[in-house]
Nucleic acid binder design. Structure first.
Length: 914
RNA sequence: GCCCCGGUGGCGGAAUAGGUAGACGCAAGGGACUUAAAAUCCCUUGUCCGAAAGGACGUGCGGGUUCAAGUCCCGCCCGGGGUACCA
């Protein structure tokens, strides 16, 4: 002792903070302004904390410690996103129950986080796997189940903005008379089809290796995000959440959030809103088999009759069986539609297929069905398809055009059918060339147009002529009476006219799909849902919910966690008394055996932190109003479209149902950049470049690790690790220590140069410059520059023979959010008996910052030639005179004509010469 | 392909509104202290020419605006991330 002994110091202060509950958030009654600062809570993996975790955590910790010193009531909680596959995979291998593995991993993470001295309010700790927590996850699921989306409901939000569309109780869903007439069962089924949580048997992403179905967001290039296993498309009954109902609000309500533009853009692209029109194409009686049997005259007569009928009755919500409905963003190219394509999964495939095409169509659809998404993308360049044998009538030209089946049309987007305009769509162009379908140009490109890269890429040569599609906007041609109109005008006019004749309607589409919400795993939240069984024990398709009072639905006891390799859920292997029960009315019920995905728990944990011990509600409304929204949320950019979209969706549903008071949960979002290994590559075990925080803390201490992670570079930036960089900040802390403490003494004794003297002007100026810089930098989350300013202060002050306490004390306070342990120790050495964590943050005095003399650059023709020293506040004329008096300047001006002089007071002088 | 974000010494990075490019740290070289080492302290360090004084060139490349450009505008090149038949 006492060199800078971080081991002793850090454990001492961590104990002190724990014993004194230093960082417990105060109640709303404190009257202080609140600040809610949140970290993305970790999945407690078996490998323990990664150096990437403390990056964001240190940043939020600095903001929190700083904010407490500025008098804020700070909520800074931590918890565990602890459901998930790895614990279950471990159970498959070892037989250890996932709960046991999870608890061990949490203990490791907690030890590591405590070792870093983060100022969390640990009394608010929670884990998504706690029954007390997932009880409320299940409860929120029941809210989703009990809600339908009313797209016409008009209302005004708490922000005063009026909106259309809102989630409402299912009991308020209007039931059509014919459904009511059909009885209560029909009504229940009707309601079930409108809930935000519903069962669907659409094709899903089944991953045999993981033994579960995955959401679209979890599939990357046809492989699972976790483990890169192949994913197949299979039809399965699955729980879906109707996130698409909220697509518009999820996109538009991003506007007022203080988020990085790149993340907003990412979410908007993911939602993928496009506007256009739905158009109906007449196909006549499609049950006749081959339409080539039907005379063109009779079809066109039918077309005329249909048009007349439509003109009278208007656009129907359901298209009926005699038309093919398509979605297009370019209704203005309707005259150029020379064929149509339906997806292989389209319901009309069978009835549109003629006898002679039947074999070819069946074969094609079978192949398409077994193709995974990966196969579809790999083959993207080669367009495939098959003719149905049927034709439709182009509603504007009256031409009969062939209907094809091709897998470049997706059943899940739009109506699953398109009108193909080969002259103005790259994909249609390729397809038409391949299958020799006519190409009619209906848009004249603007003057001087050159094909874009991808337009040129699909160009072909026909009879010595180069044929290129044009996908841009231009002027209408070959479009009857509309020739000459601009694309935008034509689009608007045609949509309106077709709408008046009942042939089309403006429409909006989204790339966003409904959220596949069920998994076949054990280690996820069970659903609070029962399926009714008939007398033979078969499901009737009707459902019941668990009573809210009976929640949580706990996991059944299980010993064997091996997946069967089929999409059968793990929970289906549970004991009979978990799986079945008889309702009071005598109906036999079987439990839902799917479980919720890992995203469920993270959709609302920030709400539970506000009131984590509440046993009667998921959150107390008063506490919700006080703490929400989250003022600062820091985490990795990998959650840009998953967690952050899901959580916003749940929050909006909870808002619509009156359970929370804000539309958006996260006001300000910041993404920390990834930390790479020392070799500049992503850290991974296989690359052998993983840095373990435990080792760094052992060798240099927690304060050094914290400081280094903040000093590396801007928070948002990707940056490589450097052990000698850690050593650098460690040396800085040693220097700070020796600046104040006598390191030859036995105990912690102040350095002989630490005095009670009045500070010198230069010392005061240095201090106040540092206070200003550090304060501004913290507010900008620019921690690397804040630290370099403290280094400058230390380099200066260490050379002073008198180091007044009145200068050192504020500096220790500035340092404390970054390196809290050493700061507490120095604060105590300076004679204070309690923690500095609630000391008022130092204020700077503008008057003390003013320099007496300034060094001003003098340029000749924009090139720096000299530097002059002038009194601060000297005006332009004085500045010029001072510059002209300078010897070096005179030398440069000798014999030259000065054309112009620019003198900016306090900045620079520039002589323009000839 | 398309959409974002970035490109500054040997390295990580600084540079409020266009106004001294390279703060701070690392690495490297030299020196002091020491029997020695560690630790610590001091000096040098963008490139090129020059013994020095000094000069020229420098923020991915090419143009432009301006008294003045790392910063603003136009056209490219390179790297990273997102997305991928979304009609």
């Amino acid at each position: 002792m006492p060199r800078y002994d971080f081991k002793r110091i850090e454990s001492r202060w961590q104990q002190y903070w724990e014993q004194h509950s230093t960082f417990q958030a105060e109640s709303p009654a404190s009257g202080k302004p609140k600040l809610y600062v949140l970290d993305m809570f970790p999945y407690p993996s078996g490998s323990g904390l990664h150096v990437g975790h403390p990056e964001g955590y240190t940043a939020t910790d600095i903001v929190c410690r700083y904010s407490r010193m500025t008098g804020k009531n700070v909520l800074h909680p931590m918890g565990w996103d602890s459901f998930g596959l790895p614990a279950e995979e471990h159970a498959v291998k070892t037989g250890t129950h996932p709960r046991e593995t999870t608890e061990q991993n949490i203990a490791t993470f907690k030890r590591q986080l405590k070792m870093l001295g983060f100022s969390y309010d640990w009394s608010r700790e929670l884990a998504t796997t706690d029954p007390d927590y997932y009880r409320w996850t299940q409860w929120i699921f029941l809210q989703l189940f009990d809600t339908w989306y009313d797209p016409e409901h008009e209302w005004t939000g708490p922000d005063g903005v009026s909106r259309i569309g809102r989630g409402r109780p299912i009991s308020e869903l209007p039931i059509p008379a014919e459904v009511t007439a059909a009885g209560t069962e029909a009504v229940r089924r009707y309601q079930d089809r409108h809930r935000l949580a519903y069962i669907s048997d659409a094709p899903v992403n089944w991953c045999p290796a993981l033994g579960t179905v995955l959401a679209n967001e979890e599939v990357i290039d046809g492989k699972s995000e976790r483990g890169s296993h192949p994913v197949e498309r299979v039809a399965l009954k699955q729980w879906m959440l109707r996130i698409t109902a909220y697509a518009d609000r999820l996109a538009s309500e991003l506007d007022h959030l203080d988020w990085p533009d790149s993340i907003k853009l990412l979410q908007r692209n993911w939602i993928g809103r496009s506007t256009g029109a739905e158009v109906d194409f007449y196909i006549g009686n499609r049950n006749k088999g081959s339409q080539d049997d039907v005379s063109p005259e009779s079809v066109l007569a039918g077309f005329d009759a249909w048009k007349a009928e439509r003109a009278a009755s208007g656009w129907p919500a359901e298209p009926g069986t005699d038309v093919l409905r398509v979605y297009t963003t370019r209704p203005d190219t309707l005259y150029g539609a020379t064929y149509m394509v339906i997806a292989p999964e389209h319901p009309f495939v069978e009835s549109l297929t003629s006898a002679e095409q039947k074999a070819a169509v069946t074969d094609y659809c079978r192949k398409a069905a077994t193709k995974s998404d990966l196969d579809r993308t790999e083959l993207a360049k080669d367009k495939t398809g098959v003719f149905t044998g049927s034709r439709a009538v182009n509603p504007v030209s009256g031409e009969r055009i062939p209907i094809w089946i091709a897998d470049y049309v997706l059943i899940s987007y739009g109506t699953g059918a398109i009108m193909a305009v080969p002259a103005h769509d790259l994909r249609d162009f390729e397809f038409a060339v391949r299958f020799d379908i006519p190409v009619i140009q209906v848009v004249q490109p603007p003057e001087g147009w050159e094909p874009s890269k991808d337009e040129a890429a699909v160009a072909v040569e026909v009879d010595g002529q180069k044929l290129v599609p044009f996908a841009g906007r231009g002027t209408a041609m070959n479009s009857g009476e509309y020739n000459g109109l601009s694309t935008d005008d034509f689009k608007r006019q045609l949509t309106e006219q077709l709408n008046n004749s009942g042939l089309a309607q403006a429409a909006v589409n989204y790339k966003l799909r409904d959220w596949l919400f069920s998994r076949q795993r054990y280690w996820g939240e069970p659903f609070p849902i029962w399926h009714e069984l008939d007398a033979d024990g078969n499901p009737t398709g009707l459902m019941r919910t668990d009573d809210v009072a009976s929640l949580p639905v706990l996991h059944p006891h299980m010993d064997d966690f091996k997946p069967a390799g089929t999409p059968e859920p793990m929970l289906a292997k549970a004991e009979q008394d978990w799986l079945f029960r008889t309702a009071d009315d005598g109906t036999r019920l079987k439990r839902e055996t799917n479980s919720m995905p890992q995203w469920a728990g993270s959709c609302w944990y920030f709400l539970r932190f506000c009131d984590n011990k509440n046993s009667t509600a998921f959150i107390d409304p008063e506490l919700e109003k006080y703490w929400m929204p989250v003022d600062l949320y820091i985490g990795g950019a990998e959650h840009a479209v998953l967690h952050l979209l899901y959580a916003r969706f749940w929050h909006k549903v909870l808002f619509d149902r009156g359970h929370v008071s804000m539309v958006e949960p996260f006001q300000k979002l910041v993404n920390q950049g990834m930390i790479l290994g020392e070799n500049g590559e992503k850290m991974s075990k296989s690359r052998g470049n993983v840095i373990n925080p435990d080792d760094v803390v052992r060798d240099y201490g927690a304060d050094s690790l914290r400081l280094y992670e903040m000093f590396m570079g801007p928070l948002e930036q990707v940056k490589p690790w450097s052990m000698s960089g850690v050593e650098g900040v460690y040396r800085f802390l040693g220097k700070v220590w020796r600046m104040m403490v006598d390191d030859r003494a036995e105990d912690v004794v102040l350095h002989a140069h630490v005095t009670e003297d009045e500070p010198a002007d230069t010392q005061l100026r240095m201090l106040h410059k540092t206070i200003r810089a550090v304060t501004n930098d913290i507010n900008k989350l620019s921690f690397n520059t804040a630290i370099s300013r403290m280094m400058e202060f230390t380099n200066f002050m260490s050379h002073e023979d008198s180091r007044p306490k009145s200068v050192l004390e504020p500096f220790v306070l500035l340092l404390s959010p970054f390196a809290p342990h050493i700061a507490e120790e120095l604060w105590s050495a300076l004679g204070h008996s309690t923690t500095l964590s609630r000391e008022p943050w130092p204020q700077y005095d503008e008057a003390l910052l003013v320099e007496d003399t300034l060094e001003i650059p003098v340029q000749i023709k924009g090139k720096l030639k000299a530097r002059i020293h002038v009194p601060n506040g000297l005006d332009a004329a004085g500045l010029q005179a001072a510059a002209e008096a300078d010897e070096a300047v005179q030398k440069h001006l000798e014999g030259k004509t000065v054309v112009k002089v620019i003198a900016v007071p306090g900045r620079m002088v520039n002589f323009v010469i000839r």
